Structure formats: C-alpha cells, structure tokens
Simulated assay, not measured.
Amino acid sequence: MNHVLYSPAKLNLTLRIGARRADGLHDLSSVFLRLPSVEALTITMDSENNVKDLLSVQTIELKGINLVTRASERLRALGWPLPFLRVSLWKQLPPGTGFGAGSGNGAAFLRWASALLGRSLPLELARELGADVPFLVSGLPLAFACGVGERLEGLKALNLSALLLVPRWSSPTARAFADLDRRREERGSSVSDPLFFRIEAETLVDDLRRGATVGLLPNDFTDLLAERHPEYGLFFAMAEKAGALAWGISGSGSGAFALAQGPTALLKLVASVSAEPWVTHLLVLE
C-alpha cells in the first residue's frame, strides 16, 4: 500500500536574527506564513528490506541526507518501531532557497509517522531538524516565532496569493549566518530589542490584513544578498510596478517572493520577470 503525503513550504514575512548564542545557534523573531502543499512524498512499507530506507527524488537533484531520512533514523534511535520504507519524493523547490521545502518534507513525514504509530508528535525532534520544522509540523497557517523557531504563537490566516522566485544561485544557511555574524562584528552592530521585532511584525501583519501596500519586508539577510546580486532590486521594482502588496527574501535566501490579493498582479509580474536569465523557477500559489 502506498501512502501519499502532501508537503508544505513557508515564507518568512519578517526575519530578524539575534546574537549568536553559546550553542552556536541564533535566536530569531519571525512571522511564518504556511504555503499550500508544493511537494509530495509517496511512502511504501518495504517488507523485503531490513537494512535502511530507500529514498528516490524526482525532478530535482539533492545532495546529502534529506530531512525525511534524518527524521526516520532519529525516530528509530528514539525507539519508535518504524519499518524500513521506500520513499519517492517529488520536488519543485531546490534546497538553499529559504522556502523550507525540505523542512516541509520532514514535517509531513513526522506527522505521518506519528499517526501511523499512534504516538504524539515529537516536537523536540522537530526543533532538532531545523528552525522551520516546528512551524510546518504544527499545521498553523500563520505564526509569530521566536527562540530558534520552536516557540510559536498562532495568528489568524492571511488570504493572500504568493509568487515564489528561485534564482540561479543558492544561499546555504550556514554560510549566510556566518556572513551576517562577520558583518556585524566588522561594523560593531548591535541587535535590536526583541520587543521592537514583535511590534514590527504585528504592524506588518495588520497592514497586510487590511490590504495595504507595505513594500519590502524586513529580513536581516536582504542587504547581504542584494549587494552580491543586484537582480533582487530589479525583481522588487517589478513587483512594485505590477501592484504587489509586499515583496522580499524568504529565510536566509536565495528565494524571493511577492504577495498580492489574488493572482492578477502576480501573473503580471510573472510576465515581466520570466524572461530574466537569472530566474530558474517561478511558482504562483493561491
């Protein structure tokens, strides 16, 4: 029997990064927006295999260990009687784009394994797998997150359409955080009060909820990425001209996005940006 799981992704409508902690991680303040299912996993119990899970990936090449494999290995290490599996993963969004598609794969798997075995969702494992996973495993449509992504406060859903843009370059998370730390050290920059981040986030969500144009959304990685790739500025200008409400970079990049009330403005934006040679994927979600 095949089990088909639909896997979500996310946008960071805001992303503020705190100072580096003693454990090497960073506290964050962010508004997470859940995206509709963009990828899918097909899981089959493998009665002939008692060695390891077998994972195949369709459409996009992945390097390293996918979060589905990491999640299954950790669950078994925790004593969960999970059989070995054959997993086929159909992907639309490459890694290193900040849309959390890999985290969505892991979150979908954790929810499935919990239901299969009748056990509570392993929230500590979700946090261990990555900052996006606790939100994606929660099922919340919109949330304010702090800590390292594990402290969530659910917010009322936003009824917005989104355009996701994947450029030809990626932005590995570890490198992005190291670059941000280095820049702050060189400039002697301080980190703002978390209360400011919360007020900023609440104001932006309220503005978007009433259909106001808010423009470029705050993300501490935007300046670094825009300096290396001026193409972001071109996309943001196109988004404004097309009539989008908001635009920005998700996570630590490299993916950019625009938001609008309904798809009309976004389809106009697609027509403008699709011919750009630096764009590899465009995806409109409602």
Rank of each mutant, 00 (worst) to 15 (best):
I199T: 13
A157G: 13
D53Q: 05
A212S: 14
Q92W: 00
A145L: 06
R111V: 14
F235A: 01
L208W: 01
S189G: 12
S161E: 11
A260V: 03
A22T: 10
A131G: 04
V166T: 07
S171A: 15
A176R: 02
L269G: 00
K91T: 08
L33F: 05
L41S: 03
A256P: 07
L28R: 08
N2K: 15
A178D: 14
P167Y: 06
Q261Y: 02
D27Q: 11
V51M: 12
L283V: 09
L282S: 04
L121T: 11
L89I: 13
M238Q: 15
L234C: 06
T213D: 09
K10P: 02
A9N: 01
S252G: 04
R74N: 08
A260C: 10
R16H: 14
V279T: 04
R182P: 08
G154E: 10
A244V: 01
L67S: 09
G98V: 02
R16T: 07
L163Y: 00
E186C: 07
Y232N: 04
L217F: 00
A157K: 03
G188L: 09
S56I: 09
L13G: 06
A22D: 13
P141V: 01
D223A: 14
A239I: 03
R74I: 07
E185F: 10
A115L: 13
R184N: 15
R127M: 05
N159P: 09
N12T: 10
S252M: 02
L282R: 14
G118W: 06
N159L: 07
G130S: 08
G251W: 07
H3C: 12
P141M: 02
N66R: 04
L15A: 05
G104S: 07
L28Y: 09
S7L: 08
T203A: 15
R209H: 08
V51E: 15
S37G: 14
F99W: 01
I17K: 10
S189C: 13
G98T: 04
L85R: 03
T222R: 13
S138A: 10
R210T: 14
G147H: 04
I17G: 00
F135A: 12
L164S: 02
R209C: 05
F84D: 01
G130V: 09
A145Y: 03
D220P: 12
D132N: 11
A143T: 05
H26N: 09
K268M: 05
Q92Y: 04
V284G: 00
R86V: 11
F221D: 00
A113G: 09
V4C: 12
V57D: 10
G262V: 06
